[in-house]
Amino acid sequence: MRLVLEVHDVTTFYGDSQILFGLSLQVQEGQVVTLLGRNGMGKTTTVNSIMGIVPPREGEIRYGSRLISGLPPYRISNLGIGLVPEGRQIFPNLTVRENLLATAGNMSAKKDPWDLERVLAFLPSLKARLRNLGNHLSGGEQQMLAIGRALMTNPTLLILDEATEGLAPLVRAEIWSRLKLLKTEGQSILLIDKNLLALMRLADRHYIIEKGNIVWSGSSRELEAEPALKARYLGV
């Protein structure tokens, strides 16, 4: 299998405070990979390092064979990484339609690309809301929109930071089913969430992050087999 993303020995700082201490992880093509860990351990910082929003101070991040650490966020995005950020960060002053269209593109020249029609068929709850402003949506609708907005950039790797945080159970179930569908279509996904049960069903590989470093990685079955891990690192 081809390597989509390789984070190698990355250290990242916010100002003077170091958040990541030589973190490494990999995502293979077509895999769903999760990043698990309690709050404040560096999950979002890992995402921000990959996206170039907070460039790492040391270490290397590769997308395919290409070195992307040090590139500005827009170039990293254009290479084929789509972000569904923590807190969703919908553009509040744009309509749903505009949110989907403003940053749309197909830089990696995918065959059968995502366009407005296909995204709306995939996320039908947005259909009736196309003319509404982003800040008039419910949390669940905003998350659907954030996913749709990222898909419209036609990413090879989709990153979701807190995929279902703060959402009602029904909406969560809907998002898990959408992600499962994406996986069957071969979409590579790096996923952050707290809903361990759903993640174990969906993902191929898990990384546990603790104080800015990966302390464990393995498959869902391996994670299942070690309940002590959950107690120690995930507070479950």
Binding site: M51, I53, P72, P73, Y74, S77, N78, G82, L83, P85, Q89, F91, P92, N93, L94, E98, N99, A102, T103, G105, M107, R149, A150, T153
Partner: peptide
């Protein structure tokens, strides 16, 4: 307009 509300997100979605 998107840049006015959230410029980091605009650039993380591929816009220079």
């Amino acid at each position: 307009r998107a840049g006015a509300s959230n410029r980091v997100m605009v650039s993380a979605l591929g816009v220079n």
